[in-house]
Simulated scan of single mutants.
Amino acid sequence: MADRIQRIVTGLPDLTKVTGVWAVADGRVAQGDPAFCADLGIALADAYGSGQMWQYRSVFDHLLRLLATTPGSENAAQALRLVSSKAVTSRKLDRFTASLLASGQEAEDLAAAFTGPASEELRACLVHELVLRGVAVEETPGIAGWATSPHWRHHPLGRLPLTLSDVEGLPDLPRYGPRGSSHSMPFGPSERRAPVKAAGAPVPSVQETTTEAAATAMACAVANWAEESNGRIEARLFDLAAPLDAESVPNALLTLGLDCLSGAGRKPALSVSVLPPDRAWAVLFAAASSGGAYNSGSYGAYGRLAAWQSLAALAGCPEGAATSEVEARVRDCVWHGFDAGTKWFEQVAWDIGLTVLSPDRRRLAVLAATDTD
C-alpha cells in the first residue's frame, strides 16, 4: 500500500486530470479500506499542503468528502484522522469537516470525535451541526458527556442552546457527496412577493441612530458576502418620534434615505411583505452558513451563531442576551421583507432586505445585502 501511495504522490503534479485518483479512492472505500484514503491524504498534505496546487486541492477534497459522507464508524474515524494531520489542520477545515460528518454519518458513529483525534474546535462545531439536524446531543452516548460539560462554555459556540428553538424550525442544510454539494437559497429578487398596501397616515419624524457597533452586529450574518465575495451591505437604525403603524412601514422605508432604495417608488417599485420571525432567521442562517457568490460561508455551527447575533441586534436585544430572551423579543417585533429593482441590488440570486419594527413601534432597524458572481 505504501508503494501505491508513493506513486500517486510523486505523479500528482504531472496529472492533467485527477479522476483516476478519485476512482482508486472510491474503490478502496468500497472494499472496506478507508485507512488507505486517510494515509493518501496525509501523505499528499505532507508533500504539497503548503503549495496548494490544484491537483492536490481536488484530490484532498475528494478524499475528505468520500470518507465523511460514506456512512460507517470507520469511515468517520479515518476522516477525523485525516483532518487532524498537522499539515492540514485549521479552524476553517474543522468547520467544513463537522458539517460533512454531521450530514453523512449517524450520530452514534461520531462518538470517536469526542474521544479520539479531533480538535476542540471540530468538536464544538460538530455538536451544533448535529443540533441543527435535530439530534438530541444531550442524550447521545459518546457525545453527551462532552456536549454538556461546562469546560467549553468559553467557546463562542458555547452560548448556543443544545436544542433548536421554535424560531429556528427545521433549517435548510446543504447536501454533500464525494463530488460536490448543494443547498437552498431562501433569498433573491422576488416576483411573487405580495406587497403590503401602504397606509395613508403620515410617517413620524425620524432620527438615524446607527453606530458602527450596531451596524456590525446587525450585519453579522451577511458580513462574509462583503469580506469574501463581491457583496454590499447596508445596516441602519432609526428612532421614531411617535409609534409607527406596522402598515406604514413601506412608506417609512421610502423616507429613510436608504442607499439600497435610492430611486425606488413607482419605477422601480418597492415590494414589502410581512415576514414571520422564523423566515427571517432562515434567511440570515442561509446567508451566514452558505455564503455568497464566491465563498462558502461559515457552515452550520457558526452560521447558526451569526444568524442569532444578527437577529438579536435587529430586534434591539442587549449584547450577550440569552437565546431565550432574544426569541421572546423577536416575536414581539414586526418583521418585513423588502426588495426593489434599484441599481443597488444586483438582482442575481443573492439579495436580502429585512426591516424590523420594535415592540413599542418607535425603533426601526434595516438590513439589506446583495452579492453577485
Rank of each mutant, 00 (worst) to 15 (best):
M1W: 09
A2Q: 14
R4N: 09
R4E: 15
R4V: 14
I5A: 06
I5Y: 07
G11L: 07
G11H: 11
L12Y: 10
P13S: 03
G20S: 12
D26K: 08
R28V: 00
A30N: 07
Q31V: 01
A38D: 05
D39F: 01
A45W: 05
A47M: 07
G49N: 10
Q52L: 14
W54C: 02
Q55S: 13
D61T: 13
D61P: 01
L64P: 10
T70Q: 08
S73H: 07
E74A: 15
A77M: 03
V83K: 04
S90G: 09
R91D: 13
R91E: 13
A98I: 02
G104M: 04
G104F: 06
F114R: 01
T115M: 02
A118Y: 03
L122C: 04
L126W: 00
V127T: 08
L130I: 05
L130A: 05
A136C: 08
V137M: 08
E139A: 15
P141N: 09
P141S: 10
I143L: 13
G145I: 01
G145V: 07
T148L: 15
T148Y: 09
S149D: 15
W152D: 05
W152C: 01
R153V: 08
G158M: 02
L160I: 00
D166K: 13
V167G: 01
G169S: 04
L173S: 10
L173K: 09
P174Y: 11
R175P: 00
R179C: 02
F187W: 12
E191A: 15
E191P: 02
R192A: 14
R193A: 14
R193F: 04
A194E: 14
P195C: 04
A198H: 00
A199R: 12
A201S: 14
V203R: 08
V203S: 11
P204Q: 11
E208N: 10
A213C: 00
A214K: 11
T216N: 12
M218G: 05
M218F: 04
C220W: 10
A221Y: 03
V222F: 04
V222E: 09
V222H: 03
V222Q: 06
A226T: 10
S229E: 10
G231F: 08
G231Q: 07
F238A: 08
D239A: 15
A241Y: 06
A242M: 07
A246I: 01
N251Y: 00
N251Q: 15
C260H: 05
A264R: 02
R266D: 15
A269G: 11
L270A: 06
S271A: 13
S273K: 09
V274W: 10
V274H: 13
P277L: 05
W281M: 09
W281S: 06
A282W: 06
V283A: 12
A286C: 11
A288V: 06
A293I: 03
A293W: 06
A293P: 04
S298H: 13
Y299P: 00
Y302F: 15
Y302K: 05
G303L: 08
R304M: 03
A307Q: 05
Q309I: 01
S310Y: 04
A322K: 14
T323F: 02
E325A: 15
E327M: 00
A328W: 00
R329Y: 07
R331I: 01
R331N: 14
C333D: 09
F345K: 01
E346R: 11
E346F: 12
A349I: 07
D360G: 01
A368M: 02
A368V: 03
A369S: 08
A369H: 01
D371K: 05
D373M: 07
